[in-house]
Amino acid sequence: MNSEIPLNWFLYFAAASFSIGLVGVLLRRNAIVVLMAIEIMLNAANINLVAFWRYGTPPPGAGPLAGVILALFVITIAAAEVAVGIGLILLCYRRWNAADVDRYDSLSG
């Protein structure tokens, strides 16, 4: 099935959302927002994986696992990461009464 939407569009979209996520991690100070930005980055990579899987032809000897399997696993991993991340943010929030990553500065040097 020849596609209506060229592969490049998917890659541009993924690169754009990846950059948005990266900028979010670097610029935003709220820990929850940082967590959201990380999720955006992971999902950008997922879009890449699915697009490459859909449009690509595996070389001979590529093995049975297509790249789309990685995307499935990444979704699971992202969920686990959110659970752990929220837990850690809560732990810090209780100590500092702030969810601001700049405030956590007892370690430095």
Partner: peptide, 10 residues
Amino acid sequence: SLVYGLTGTT
């Protein structure tokens, strides 16, 4: 994901 795209395999 880029490596996968360039080579078609994992």
